[in-house]
Design a protein around this nucleic acid. Structure first.
Lengths: 397, 397
DNA sequence: CTTACTTATTAATTTTTTTAAAAAGTTAGT
DNA sequence: ACTAACTTTTTAAAAAAATTAATAAGTAAG
């Protein structure tokens, strides 16, 4: 990665920075950064953004990215049941509302076509911008280096996903696993900002785990680290898709919340959702959030039980990793801080107090995390492909 | 850390290296290394150690450390019940047999005095060498930076351990937690050589865990990472010292092996150890190893049960960390590869096969690991305090 | 409004790396 | 056995980057 791109990347994550701040976060010397910034300024890729707040000495000039000279970021966020598409400029301003639509991704070719069609439509509506970067995140064992998703057979369009998307849409594309990407998003834009070691739980239809260790994503030796959802924990008899019993996933995911509620409704328990279910034949995620926010007993109980199991899982993580912070993110973030009491009491039960005291548990405050996550992934690519000409080389021309 | 010390350190771990190998492992350029090596050679701190094996081109000169010009390493390895003292030169040749003696380290002042006396005697016998480095490893929450062991009250000599040892013995001292240090030893000298991400289980009176992530020890945000022994796992009713039930430590340590055997003997079960116990009133660790090696049924069963529990713990680690390798080390290493069948079958039971296939489980082949570990810790200090004079500066004199 | 103190920016020097060239060895074919 | 092609280490020269020092720009207290 060249310095130019590195500077742009840091400014993307931090909005605006001074030369000396850039020097610290790139690890390069001040003269080097000053030189590079001057070049970028001359090329109108950076703009001066006023002086920094006073710190007792000469005030530093702050620089930020020139929106109209830098690429547009296209984010595609895929989960088991829904896909969302977002388009934003380099300063994270959405250029159109996020478009979310249902797609079940085991439905291969059709699912892929639907997603591509939706993306193309969104891009068309913006007048087919030329200079774009695309980031795509989805569940499964994703090899970001090669752009493959090994959870799909090689016949599936989702297998060689990077190449397929690039050939369909024509923009440089980076792909990553949803939970890993969400960890990056929380680390750069969410509650994990400034922490070196954080764990991010992707509380979604399943439960994923993304780990940031020493400021970088930890993937383990073969890329499977964070297979948190299948650690042996519960004494339950429910069978997991992996073939074992007692996996965290069957006890602590959004799917299990829905299962618990549906079972209660079938038992005829009183609930706001009883009517919703009869009227619409189904319960959506927003129905669930509404019921939770309005104190529906069945919903509260289901969520509380799930948080108890999740807390047991987090206790194990705390013992092993001693993280600075654990962030509950993903779709389940929508429940907000009301998740914390049940979670903390469970951690209190399963964790040595000396350790649990040292890890802060929080719920994400990022809406549409996976869209932000996809944008972060898009930005992992080279932003400017043609390296800027240096001062003296230019003068020769 | 200056380059001179860095080169010496790499040679300590690798015995002998060529300039280009040193360039790779220090991350410095070849001219820089060549220059530095020339200086060290001139000062007789390095010696030419013949040509490297042919690789198809010009053969490289290999360099190794000059034993008599470099410090002697004093290792002090403390565990709950025993302490061992080893003294070796910079090429890891023992200068005297390792002296092991029983000390219970909760017995503060007396225990400390015993250890210091033994160390002083060993040093005396070698004629009080002037240039020494001392490394000390022990259980507890050790802050290596400050040289403190927070598991002891501030009144204990083991609390401000670095300072106390330095003032008693007069040699620069580094201290570390036993399990962390053993992980380093396995990474540098044991089966973890060449791997980037390894987990090392310190199978001792308790069970500890040391983690090497991206070639460096991972301690977590506040230094407590690897508190593996208290993760909630077993359904047993035995109470752990931490106040909880079902901790790994009460089910998977050497202490628990002894407990199981003693219970069986009390029940009158037939065993080689029955006689040993009646004759000596106790069973030593070597009795245990002997019985195990000779197929004593009671011993085999006890060890097998413990390995089953340890395997369950390792399964959790594999899911979360996806390590390249897990090494069972510590005193329990003495059982050798016979530990593996029970361990692997347990991992098979609790782990997703896709994951367990990717992690190799092995038993350490390092005898007296903790002595080697202490030496590694000793070497984390600056080896040469007075920086070598550079070529040109010297010529000015 | 001056003095003491911070901090950013610029300039000069030193260090380090990169690149290129030379030297030393190995292998295989005639 | 000897030469040609190829590898790899070592040395030398050029380029890049980091340190260090100097300067400019700002703040705060008396």
């Amino acid at each position: 990665m060249n310095l130019t791109n590195e500077i742009i990347k840091h400014l993307y994550y931090s909005d605006c920075l001074s030369v000396s701040e850039l020097s610290v976060c790139t690890g390069k010397s001040i003269p080097k950064i000053a030189d590079e910034v001057a070049t970028l300024l001359r090329d109108h890729l950076l703009i001066e953004d006023g002086f920094a707040a006073s710190t007792g000495g000469r005030r530093a000039m702050r620089y930020s990215l020139a929106v109209d000279r830098l690429p547009i970021i296209i984010s595609i966020a895929i989960d088991q049941f829904y896909t969302a598409i977002g388009i934003a400029d380099i300063r994270n301003t959405l250029l159109a509302p996020i478009h979310t639509f249902p797609v079940a991704i085991y439905d291969d070719e059709h699912a892929f076509a639907t997603i591509i069609a939706a993306a193309r439509e969104a891009i068309d509506r913006l007048g087919n911008p030329k200079h774009c970067l695309l980031g795509l995140t989805m569940p499964g064992f994703v090899d970001s280096e090669r752009g493959l998703n090994h959870s799909f057979p090689s016949s599936s369009p989702f297998f060689n996903i990077k190449q397929r998307v690039e050939s369909e849409l024509g923009y440089p594309t980076a792909v990553a696993n949803d939970s890993s990407a969400i960890a990056v998003a929380e680390h750069k834009f969410g509650k994990g900002r400034g922490s070196q070691d954080i764990l991010v739980v992707n509380f979604n239809w399943g439960v994923g785990l993304g780990m940031i260790i020493s400021n970088k994503i930890y993937k383990g030796h073969s890329g499977y680290a964070g297979e948190f959802s299948h650690i042996p924990l519960a004494n339950s008899q429910k069978l997991c898709s992996c073939g074992k019993k007692g996996c965290l996933e069957v006890e602590a995911s959004l799917v299990s919340v829905f299962d618990a509620i549906k079972a209660a409704l079938a038992d005829g328990e009183a609930s706001h959702l009883q009517q919703t279910f009869q009227e619409n034949g189904e319960i959506t995620f927003s129905d669930l959030l509404f019921a939770f926010a309005h104190g529906d007993q069945v919903t509260l109980r289901a969520v509380k039980n799930i948080m108890h199991m999740l807390g047991k899982g987090l206790s194990t993580l705390i013992h092993i990793m001693n993280p600075e912070r654990i962030i509950v993110s993903g779709k389940g973030e929508g429940f907000g801080n009301d998740l914390l009491p049940a979670l903390n009491s469970s951690i209190q039960e399963y964790c040595i107090p000396r350790l649990s005291r040292l890890t802060e548990i929080s719920v994400s405050d990022l809406n549409n995390v996976q869209i932000i996550a996809s944008a972060c992934i898009a930005m992992q690519q080279p932003i400017l492909i043609y390296p800027k000409l240096k001062h003296n080389k230019l003068q020769q021309l």
